[in-house]
Amino acid sequence: MGRRRGSAAVAPILLVLTLLGLAALAVVLWPLLNARDTTELRRTTATVVESRPCGGNSPGDLVAVRVGGVERKARFDGCGHNRGQRLDVVVPRAPGADFVVRPADGATPQVDQLSSRVTWVLATVAAVAGGGYAVMLRLRRP
């Protein structure tokens, strides 16, 4: 009889661990679902035409960038660069009349942070699973 009671107590623990694993998987994959498709962006070089000071309402620097063989001016998602400075940027493949270029390093911050998120989620799952295993071992002792 004691064996039956112990196995019945293990079922809720396994259910909780399974739900935790599914929640961890959702937390890890969520940024991938929301991340922008990087194929819509193209890397290029921009030259700062007009520098803007950094502040609360700064629209960002004005840069010249070559899009489709034509040099166009656009706002840069950043401020305080020197006039004439060359920056590695990403530009939309089909930019509209008013477009913003972004630094090439920060083009996909959600995907870049994925490895850090995976590490923390897996460490949490491992800790909870270890705790669940310890509880299961303690329940099996007569």
Rank of each mutant, 00 (worst) to 15 (best):
Asn34Trp: 12
Ala23Tyr: 08
Pro53Asp: 05
Gly55Asn: 04
Gly68Arg: 12
Thr124Trp: 08
Val89Arg: 00
Met1Phe: 15
Ala11Ile: 13
Ala26Val: 04
Pro95Ser: 09
Arg5Val: 13
Gln110Leu: 15
Leu29Asp: 07
Gly106Tyr: 09
Thr108Ser: 15
Ser116Phe: 15
Phe99His: 02
Asp98Ala: 14
Thr18Gly: 11
Val101Met: 05
Leu122His: 13
Leu14Val: 06
Gly69Ile: 04
Thr39Gly: 09
Phe99Arg: 00
Val118Pro: 03
Leu32Gly: 07
Gly21Thr: 01
Arg86Phe: 11
Ala64Gly: 09
Ala26Met: 07
Gln110Thr: 12
Arg138Glu: 05
Thr39Leu: 10
Cys79Gln: 01
Arg3Asp: 14
Asp98Asn: 13
Asn57Gly: 09
Gly130Cys: 07
Trp120Phe: 12
Leu32Pro: 02
Gly130Ile: 03
Arg141Gly: 13
Asp105Phe: 11
Ala94Phe: 15
Asp105Ser: 13
Pro142Arg: 15
Ala24Trp: 03
Ala74Asp: 01
Arg4Glu: 13
Asp98Glu: 13
Gly80Pro: 05
Leu19Tyr: 12
Asn34Cys: 13
Val135Arg: 12
Thr47Gly: 03
Gly84Asn: 06
Gln85Asn: 09
Val65Lys: 02
Ile13Leu: 12
Leu137Pro: 06
Arg102Tyr: 07
Ile13Lys: 01
Gly60Gln: 01
Val100Tyr: 04
Met1Glu: 11
Met136Asn: 00
Trp120Asn: 05
Met1Gly: 13
Asn57His: 11
Val63Phe: 04
Arg140Met: 12
Val90Cys: 04
Thr18Cys: 14
Val16Ile: 06
Thr47His: 06
Trp30Ile: 03
Ala64Cys: 10
Gly21Asp: 03
Met136Ser: 03
Leu139Trp: 08
Ser51Trp: 01
Ala97Asn: 09
Ala134Cys: 08
Gly6Arg: 14
Arg36Ser: 07
Arg93Leu: 14
Pro92Tyr: 05
Ala24Tyr: 02
Arg83Lys: 15
Arg138Pro: 02
Arg86Asn: 08
Leu20Tyr: 06
Met1Val: 14
Gly80Asp: 06
Val121Trp: 11
Pro103Phe: 08
Asp37Tyr: 05
Gln113Ser: 14
Val48Glu: 02
Lys73Asn: 10
Gly56Ile: 04
Thr18His: 10
Thr38Trp: 12
Thr39His: 10
Thr18Ser: 13
Val67Gln: 08
Leu19Thr: 04
Asn34Met: 14
Pro31Cys: 08
Arg36Gln: 10
Leu19Pro: 03
Gln85Cys: 11
Arg83Ile: 09
Arg52Ser: 04
Ala11Asp: 09
Val49Asn: 01
Cys54Ala: 10
Arg140Leu: 14
Asp61Glu: 01
Pro53Trp: 05
Leu29Lys: 07
Ala127Ile: 03
Thr44Lys: 07
Gly84Phe: 10
Ala26Thr: 00
Ala94His: 15
Leu19Gln: 07
Thr47Cys: 06
Val28Thr: 04
Arg43Ile: 06
Ala97Gly: 09
Trp120Arg: 09
Gln110Ala: 15
Arg102Ile: 05
Pro103His: 03
Val91Ser: 00
Arg86Ile: 10
Leu62Arg: 00
Tyr133His: 06
Asp61Thr: 01
Val100Pro: 02
Val10Ile: 14
Leu62Lys: 01
Leu114Lys: 01
Leu14Ser: 08
Ala104Arg: 00
Lys73Met: 12
Val67Ile: 12
Arg52Pro: 01
